[in-house]
Design a protein around this nucleic acid. Structure first.
Lengths: 350, 350
DNA sequence: CTGAAAGCGCTTACAG
DNA sequence: CTGAAAGCGCTTACAG
C-alpha cells in the first residue's frame, strides 16, 4: 500500500503560492530577475517540511528534457568472467568520470535479436533510451556503427574504429607506438629476425592493423630486413614443433603475438622441443599482460591505459552531447606503457 | 548537429493515427475491447521504423508504467579497485538474470549529497528513475532504508538487513551456518579455545551479528566452554605481540576474524613472536578468501555464493515488481561453501 | 474499432 | 516580485 506522495501542487497550496514558485525555491533560482521574498521562501520550505515533500526525479527529467543518462553497450555480457580483468578498468574509468560529471549509467543488457545483443532491434536503435552511449568490446563489423553515425546518435567507441569516409569518435590506445617500442627493445638486445604470429580467421580489425603497422614501421626505422615469411597468420592449433622449427631455421630469435593464449601454447611447444624461454627464444605480447597470467608473470609487453580510456571516452561523449562538434579532438589516442618483463633476452643462438 | 529525437506524435502523424494508437500498438495492447486493425498496426510499425522511433523511458515512467529498468545502487563506487574481486561476482549474477528477464540495468553513479552518494538527495529518492532497485555494499545505518520501505519503493538488499518491525526483502549468505562449520572443523581437529577478533568501532551490522551467532551456536552444540574473554573487539592496530601473548596464555589455539586484513596483520605479529601458522596457531577467515590474497593462498574460510545472490536478488525484485507481495520468500538465505584451506591444523601446544 | 482529452509532476518562458 | 500557462512525451480511461 503505497501512500500517495505529496506533490509540488500540494506544497504550493499549503504555502499559498503557485507551483512555479515552489519549483523556483527548491532549485534555488534567485538569479537574474527572479526574486522571491525571504518570507515566501520560508513559507514554501515550511510547507515542504510539513508535507515531507520530495520532488519526483522522473518528472523533473521530463520537464528538463534531458535525462543525464549515459548508455554503455557491449555485444557480449559486460561482466563476463573471462574478460574480468580486461573490462574492469574501463568500467572504473567510465564510472569515475560519469560520477564526476553527474551522469548515471545505463547498461544495456537486454537481448534484442534472438537472444543476442545488438544495437538495432527490428531496425530500431535501442540506445536511444540514453542521451548517448559508450561502445566497447568485440567488434562486429561496421554495419551497426555506420547506421549509428548516419542517424546522428552520439556515441564514443572505446578502441579505434575506422570506417572509410566516417569520422567515428573514439578513444584508443596507441598500439602502433607500443609495438614499435617492443620491437625496438628486442632490436636493442640484438634480435634481428622477429616473427609475428597472429590469428588467421578473425575479422580483420583496427587493433590488429595498428600492431602490424607498428611492426613494419619499426623495421623501417631500424633498417631491419623485412621478411614477409615472418608475418605468420596461424591459429593457436596450428602452432606445432614442426612449425616452430621451420621458423627457427629462418633465423628467428624472437616471437611476437597478440593474445596471451599464444604464450601458453608456445610455452608448451618450446618445452616439448627442449627449449627454454627466454634463453632459447624470446617472447613478447603485443598487449597487456594484466595479472591474469598467474602461470606467466613478467611477460614482456605493454600496459593499456584502460582506466584513462574509460574516463576520456565519457569526457568526449559529454562534449558531444553538449554540442561541441568540432571534428578535432573527437578521436583520442592514449599512449601505452612498455613493460620490460622477463621473457626477452639477447639471442644466444646466433 | 543532433536532429531532434522523434516522438510518438511524429509517428502518429506519419501513420495518420492518434498518438494513443501508437502507444497501444507499441505496448501490444490487443487485449480486451481494444482492437486495432492489422492494417493500422502495420502503418504504425512502418512509421516507427522509418523514424527510428524509440519511446522515451522517462516519459513512460512519468505516465505511470514500467520501463524495464532495474537500478543498482551502492554507497561507494560500484567499480572500485579495492573491491574488485568482491563486487564482481554479484554484478555477473545481476547482469545474467537481468538479461534473462529482459531488463536493462541503471547504475546510479551520480553524486548526491556533497560529493557522496546517498539514495535521498535533499529528500529526493533518486532511485525512482528505475522500476525498482538492488542495493548492495556497505551499510550506512537504517535511515535511508527505512524511508525507502515507508515510501513503498520496491527494492532488494543484497545482504541481510534487519530493521525491527520491517520486513526488508533481501538475499543473504548464511553466515551463521558457515561460521558454525568453521568452528566445528576446528573443534574436530582438537581446538577447544577459539578466539574471535572483530573490529571495534564499526557500525554493528547483520553480517557481524550472524557470524557471532554462529560462533555462539557452535559452542553450544559442541558443548565447548564459552569464555567471553575470547570474544575480542579490537581494531587492526591493537593487535600486538603483547595482546596475542595474553590470549595464548588463556589457552587459545585458534583465531577467527572477519576481514582478510587481520590475517596479514596476525601473520606479521606471529612472525615477530617466532611463531608459525598454522603450526603454532591456527587461523580462519569468517568470509571469502577470494583470490585477492596472493600472499596468502589456501586460507581456511568459506566461499560466499555471490553470483547466485546477484541472480536471486534480481529474481526477487522482479517478483516484487509484478506484485507478488507474499511476505514469504522475500528473504532468501543461500548457503556458503566451507573451504578447508591450510591455515588450520591440530593444536600442538596443549 | 479509433480519436480527443486528461493527467503524470515537474520546469521554464512569458506576462503582469 | 509572483501567477497563469504551456509543454516535456508518454499512458489510460472515456467517448464515440
Amino acid at each position: 500500500m503505497r501512500k500517495r506522495r505529496s506533490t509540488q501542487a500540494d506544497v504550493a497550496a499549503l504555502a499559498h503560492v503557485s507551483p512555479a514558485i515552489v519549483s523556483l525555491v527548491i532549485n534555488g533560482h534567485m538569479d537574474g530577475n527572479v526574486r522571491i521574498s525571504a518570507q515566501t521562501r520560508q513559507r514554501v520550505w515550511d510547507a515542504i517540511r510539513e508535507l515531507g515533500y520530495v520532488a519526483n526525479p522522473v518528472a523533473r527529467k521530463l520537464a528538463g528534457s534531458q535525462n543525464r543518462l549515459l548508455g554503455v553497450f557491449t555485444y557480449q555480457a559486460i561482466f563476463p568472467l573471462e574478460y574480468h580483468d580486461f573490462y574492469y578498468p574501463f568500467l572504473i574509468g567510465i564510472e569515475e568520470e560519469a560520477q564526476a560529471q553527474d551522469y548515471d549509467l545505463l547498461l544495456f543488457t537486454r537481448p534484442t535479436t534472438n537472444g543476442k545483443r545488438s544495437i538495432y532491434k527490428e531496425g530500431i536503435n535501442s540506445l536511444q533510451m540514453a542521451d548517448g552511449a559508450l561502445l566497447l568490446g568485440v567488434y562486429q563489423g561496421p554495419d551497426e556503427i555506420t547506421q549509428l553515425m548516419q542517424e546522428g546518435y552520439p556515441f564514443v567507441y572505446v578502441g579505434r574504429r575506422d570506417i572509410p569516409g566516417m569520422n567515428i569518435p573514439y578513444v584508443a590506445a596507441d598500439y602502433v607506438a607500443a609495438t614499435v617500442q617492443v620491437v625496438e627493445y628486442m632490436h636493442s638486445l640484438g634480435h634481428r629476425r622477429i616473427a609475428y604470429l597472429s590469428k588467421q580467421d578473425r575479422i580483420p580489425y583496427e587493433a590488429h592493423y595498428d600492431r602490424q603497422s607498428g611492426y613494419l614501421l619499426a623495421h623501417q626505422r631500424l633498417e631491419m630486413v623485412l621478411d614477409e615469411r615472418l608475418l605468420i597468420a596461424c591459429d593457436l592449433e596450428a602452432i606445432t614443433p614442426a612449425l616452430l622449427q621451420q621458423y627457427l631455421s629462418l633465423g628467428v630469435t624472437a616471437l611476437l603475438f597478440e593474445d596471451i593464449s599464444y604464450a601458453h601454447k608456445l610455452l608448451n611447444v618450446t618445452k616439448q622441443m627442449g627449449m627454454s624461454v627466454p634463453h632459447d627464444l624470446s617472447f613478447a605480447l603485443l598487449g597487456d599482460p594484466l595479472n591474469e597470467t598467474q602461470h606467466l608473470t613478467g611477460m614482456t609487453g605493454f600496459s593499456i591505459p584502460r582506466r584513462e580510456m574509460g574516463k576520456e571516452a565519457v569526457h568526449l561523449l559529454i562534449n558531444l552531447l553538449q554540442g561541441n562538434n568540432s571534428l578535432k579532438g573527437q578521436q583520442l589516442t592514449l599512449p601505452c606503457t612498455f613493460m620490460k618483463g622477463n621473457t626477452v633476452m639477447p639471442p644466444t643462438h646466433l
